[in-house]
Amino acid sequence: MDEMIKIKNLTKDFGEGRGIFDVDLNIKKGEVFGLVGINGSGKTTIMRHLMGFLHPDKGNTSIMDKDCWKKAAELKKYVGYIPGEISFPDTHSGMDFLKLQADYMGLKSMAYAEELIDHLNLDATAKLKRMSKGMKQKIAIVNAFMYNSDILLLDEATTGLDPLMQKSFTEIIKNEKKKGKTIFMSSHMFDEMENSCDRVAFLKNGKIIHVVDMETIRGNEKLKEYKIEFNNKDDYNKFSKQPFNITRRQDEYNQVNIHIWDKDINKLFNVLSMLDVRFISHQPYTLEKCFKEIYNNTEVA
């Protein structure tokens, strides 16, 4: 059972071009898999199918080889979930809510929940109705993780969290990964994905347009991009005549962007040593850049 989550040919048509179409994804055991896309691209729809809330028009989804629709209730023993929209039932405090959920799950010990509450710096005894969006989100995070489930489905899990808390959340994800958990998360925050995911799928208008392996993005690439600015126009023009692969020019700033292989880097320095350079900076290839490139270059019918 190497593949924990299988999405095969999944289609759900809401009409007017909205919905998801022929989505195919396989997520391996122990993998952290990300799903990015702009609002309305279908991330939540995919999550809802995995939770057995929606019935596919075509295709199917399975977790641990069990059909997500037919075995929905049984699968919940192994799945922790953060819904895209946070709205709690009428319970008094955050802790009351967590205890209620623990009761449904048959969870006896709240020890791990307490640990998570600590880690997120959360006051769970506060009234749910008085809580800020971020606090509610933290409660939802604790709720998803406290059962120590093997599989985690996280729909926009860091909405409303401040940047420091987003870091704590990334740490939690990394810890869970170490424990061998399989995590499927959707987000529109690229940093969060970059730091925690093994693979990321791009979603556009309900279709998967690309799946990237994060190894290829995390600074391991041999072809790097640099931005160079010169102090005067002469040197800028001189540099422009050199046989480098210039990808972008900004005449008004005397700036160029170039792509260069690591093996050729000394040639660049030889040339630059003759010129009056204001600065040179490495432009790391980020998930965001990768996404924008592919997103804009892909037409989805």
Binding site: K76, G80, S87, P89
Partner: peptide
């Protein structure tokens, strides 16, 4: 109202069947 508000998600994210 629980479906409308979304609170039903928490009940159904536990092993309680819809029929139940």
């Amino acid at each position: 109202s629980q479906v409308d508000k979304g609170t039903m998600a928490y009940i159904l994210s536990t092993p309680v069947k819809r029929l139940k």
